[in-house]
Structure formats: structure tokens, C-alpha cells
């Protein structure tokens, strides 16, 4: 047992520092994907809420595709497809050019596309949960469009959307493990390297699982606080 724990030490003999670096990259990847995914999700939600049938159709098509495809397949299509597409484009300008797509960027794009599809559903429900009268009242008070959004619509939308977005974040955190397949040195990949050298797969993958558990535990604490804060102006039935 002690021998196993020694394998986790920081320094040249242990894998602690390598795994910590991987864990950090996992967090970085998830945090970098979050704004991309939410921005896509917001655009898709607005498209699905629009009065134009074409925009609504496109929004629904997007959701059907990226919610239905395995995340791993989306990742491969973005990574290899992006590489081929960009290489072909570059060959128009430079003879025999070859473009390498950065794996981190491919990961952010692929996970962002998926997160966009799932968060658009959450955001759409939240947009629709804010009654029209709120906007009209804001207009009657003479608030500008932007101030209406910032002061009236958004705080209410945010409260409704948070639990769903928290769910999306947890799924994203776990989905980041897939990028290890295209050789990003995230937590999963660093663990695999440690396993390759030490021949202790059970121990190291268990450690990786526990790190993911700590991440999701910490996330639920943060989201719990955010949800309490977002609901501070809202009295629940039963009042607590």
C-alpha cells in the first residue's frame, strides 16, 4: 500500500506532479469550453425562439445532430475533418501545405458544439419562463433594450437556467476525458502514461476517478452557492 502511495509522490520518482498537471489541463479545457458552449447555446436558443421558421428549423436541426452524435465521433470529425479541410484550403495558397490542428482547440470546438446543443435547451426553457409582461413593464418604465436585458430579463432567466447549466457543466467535465483519445495530456492521458510505466492500472485509474469525483463535488458546492444567490429575491412556496 505504501509503495502504491509513493507512486503518487511529487518529484522524479512519483507521478503526482504529472497527474496534477493533467488534472489542471482538464480544468482548463472545461473552463475554456464553457463560454464557447454557452455562447453557441444562446445563439441556438434565440434561433429556436425566433419568429422565422427557417431559423427555428436550423436551430432544431443543430440540436438533433449534436445531441444525437456520440461525443467521441464529434471529436474525431472536428479533429480529422478540420485538419483535412484546413489543409485543402491552405493548398490553394501554398503548394503542398499541411495544417496541423491544435488538439486543445479541436477539443474546445468539439465539446463546445456538444455543450451548445444541450445548453440551448436549458436556455430556451429559461427564456420562455420569463413572462412577456416583465419586458413590457420595463419598457413602460423607459428602460433601454440592453438595460431591460441586464436588469430585468437576465436575472430571472439566470435563476431558471442555473440548475440545468450546472448539469451541463458536470457532463462537460466528464466528457473532457474523451480528448485524451486525440493525445491531449489531460488527466486521463497522464494517468494512462503512468499506467504504462508502472503497470498499476487499477490503482491509477481509481485515483483518476477520485480526482474527477473531487471536481464534480467542488462544482456542485459552487453551483449550490450560485443557485442560492440567484434565488435570493425569490420566495419559494413554504418559504425557506
Amino acid at each position: 500500500m505504501l509503495d502504491l502511495l509513493r507512486l503518487l509522490s511529487f518529484g522524479p520518482d512519483g507521478w503526482g506532479d504529472e497527474i496534477a498537471q493533467g488534472a489542471l489541463l482538464t480544468i482548463e479545457l472545461a473552463l475554456a469550453t464553457l463560454p464557447v458552449g454557452i455562447a453557441i447555446g444562446l445563439m441556438i436558443a434565440l434561433a429556436k425562439d425566433s419568429s422565422s421558421a427557417i431559423l427555428r428549423g436550423l436551430g432544431n436541426l443543430y440540436t438533433t445532430i449534436f445531441r444525437g452524435l456520440p461525443e467521441l465521433l464529434t471529436l474525431f470529425i472536428v479533429y480529422y475533418g478540420g485538419q483535412m479541410l484546413l489543409t485543402e484550403l491552405a493548398e490553394h495558397f501554398v503548394e503542398g501545405a499541411h495544417v496541423e490542428v491544435n488538439q486543445f482547440v479541436a477539443g474546445v470546438v468539439a465539446l463546445g458544439l456538444v455543450l451548445g446543443a444541450f445548453s440551448s435547451e436549458v436556455l430556451l426553457a429559461a427564456i420562455r419562463a420569463v413572462p412577456k409582461g416583465q419586458k413590457e413593464a420595463a419598457a413602460a418604465l423607459g428602460l433601454s433594450g440592453w438595460r431591460t436585458f441586464r436588469l430585468v430579463t437576465f436575472p430571472q432567466l439566470w435563476r431558471v437556467a442555473l440548475p440545468g447549466l450546472s448539469n451541463n457543466w458536470m457532463v462537460l467535465l466528464k466528457d473532457t476525458s474523451l480528448v485524451s483519445v486525440i493525445a491531449i495530456s489531460d488527466l486521463m492521458r497522464q494517468t494512462a502514461i503512468a499506467v504504462g510505466v508502472t503497470k498499476q492500472p487499477f490503482f491509477f485509474y481509481l485515483v483518476a476517478c477520485l480526482i474527477y469525483l473531487v471536481f464534480s463535488g467542488a462544482s456542485s458546492v459552487v453551483f449550490g452557492k450560485l443557485e442560492d444567490r440567484a434565488a435570493r429575491g425569490f420566495k419559494r412556496v413554504g418559504g425557506h
Binding site: 474523451l178 486521463m188 494512462a192 487499477f202 485509474y205 481509481l206 476517478c209 474527477y212 469525483l213
Partner: peptide, 15 residues
């Protein structure tokens, strides 16, 4: 529910 399916799969297969 809190850990990635990929990690669980590796845990079982390589474990």
C-alpha cells in the same frame, strides 16, 4: 455518475 465512463471502462479493462 460522478466519474467519466471512459475512466470506468479503463479501470475495469486494464484493472
Amino acid at each position: 455518475r460522478g466519474t467519466p465512463l471512459l475512466a470506468q471502462t479503463f479501470l475495469v479493462y486494464y484493472g
